[in-house]
């Protein structure tokens, strides 16, 4: 199962709820404003770091760069993907979109 989050964690609780329901065999992909949840130094960092011990978290690189951030700003262990990688993940899994 692939969970996707496209909202900033500072605007809605979508990311936190998503992580509450994500399980070992799942993946989480952050895109659009969701990428703010993947960045170092935020309130969410420890939650993300803990979650990475159980499952993979991906971040969509074009959405990171569009917002003036660089891959270096992303928490270590979060996997960068491009659009093709996003499509592959979505095709391989049942998608749960956390709106």
């Amino acid at each position: 199962m692939l969970h996707t989050v496209n909202k900033s964690p500072f605007q809605t609780n979508s990311l936190e709820t998503c992580l509450r329901f994500a399980r070992a065999s799942h993946s989480v992909l952050l895109f659009e404003d969701g990428i703010y949840g993947a960045l170092k130094g935020t309130r969410l960092e420890s939650l993300i770091t803990d979650s990475l011990k159980s499952y993979s978290i991906y971040v969509l690189v074009p959405d990171v760069e569009a917002r003036g951030m660089r891959i270096g700003d992303v928490i270590d262990g979060v996997k960068p993907v491009d659009y093709a990688g996003f499509v592959d993940l979505a095709a391989e899994n049942t998608v749960q979109a956390w709106l």
Binding site: M1, R20, F21, R23, T94, V95, Q96, W98
Partner: peptide, 16 residues
């Protein structure tokens, strides 16, 4: 949340 997570895993389609 464990029961709900399991329910989600069992689905063919999840609509949010």
């Amino acid at each position: 949340q464990d029961e709900l997570a399991l329910l989600m895993e069992q689905q063919d389609v999840v609509l949010s």
